[in-house]
Design a protein around this nucleic acid. Structure first.
Ligand code: ZN
Ligand code: ZN
Ligand code: ZN
Ligand code: ZN
Lengths: 161, 161
DNA sequence: ATTTGTTATGTAATAATATAACCAACGTCA
DNA sequence: TGACGTTGGTTATATTATTACATAACAAAT
């Protein structure tokens, strides 16, 4: 991620390697349970998204995929689609980026707080879904999926601005 | 816009030409008042977005810009940025598309209902903004801008599915 | 009227994001 | 085994957006 400011972001808290291992195992278990195959491309893509610990661009995954040289775009885009369908990652529309789902209950729609300074994201439950659906229903609109992305400054970054 | 279905969408209600003329005049007045220049590129871009009367892609504007042949991308992207800053249009993040603002009070953030069938959009006020901000404030996050886009089916399209 | 600074446009190239099309390899189950 | 569906490899292409730099148009001061 590139940011709008030059100062350091010490609060970038990376997931510890062992925490990532737990997530990878859980993901494999989830796929097994669902009768889907967690193949090596899919696992590697998920691993890179976990390592980033912030929204990551598809082409950054592509670039980091192999120790020597990039993956082919379709390899990664296929894996991203799969992971999104499994609920293991979310797509951030306003960034064209992807982030690991932060909850245990996959298969939900999530909202996001996106820090414009450090690039970190925070997954939140979308507040007041019934009100949004009610607002839509005024004209007979039936909601299938809600995208909620709030840009702003995280707590740590407010001090620096 | 390309849609997910093959049937016709008779409810595509196009803005009447005279209604578009009113909007164009109002936009020019708005710019004059703000001390900004509504140049011919900007006016033409706005006109094409009004004519579309639904979210339109940047490259569709580019293709339609001249009677004979396309505009150069920077011409249109610059105009889109200007129009968005003036509050005359909104960008729809989940579609990579642009739509004319449907209100008189420009300079707001709007929510959108996006029909997955006919491609029409409806601009709505974002419900419960204070709740969203409160949800963010739980971790000290300060919201600057909210993107809310709800995909689903408009009233007219529900009958066809 | 000239200079100067600012804003806007023209133009070419390229970057960044994403998908199509096709075929080969692999799993699984009859 | 072999037929079938799923996954992956590869090439090419489509789509979306920006950079970089030169020029033009405008406004205001000299
Ligand atoms: Zn999630
Ligand atoms: Zn931050
Ligand atoms: Zn609006
Ligand atoms: Zn519809």
């Amino acid at each position: 991620m590139s940011h709008s400011c030059e100062h350091t972001h010490d609060h970038d808290h990376h997931l510890k390697p062992d925490a990532r291992a737990v997530r990878l195992e859980a993901a494999q278990a989830l796929c097994l349970e669902a009768g889907e195959r967690m193949t090596s491309s899919r696992l590697r893509t998920y691993e890179l998204i976990l390592e980033a610990n912030a929204p990551i661009k598809a082409y950054d995954v592509i670039d980091r995929f192999h120790p020597d040289g990039a993956a082919k775009p379709p390899t990664v885009y296929r894996a991203l689609s799969f992971l999104e369908q499994m609920g293991l990652i979310h797509r951030i529309e306003s960034l064209n980026a992807f982030v690991a789902c932060d909850t245990h209950d996959h298969k939900h729609t999530a909202g996001f707080l996106l820090c414009e300074c450090c690039g970190q994201s925070e997954e939140i439950a979308i507040p007041n879904v019934p009100e949004i659906e009610a607002s839509a229903a005024k004209t007979g609109f039936k909601v299938n999926h809600i995208t909620l992305e709030a840009r702003g400054l995280c707590n740590a970054c407010q001090a620096s601005h």
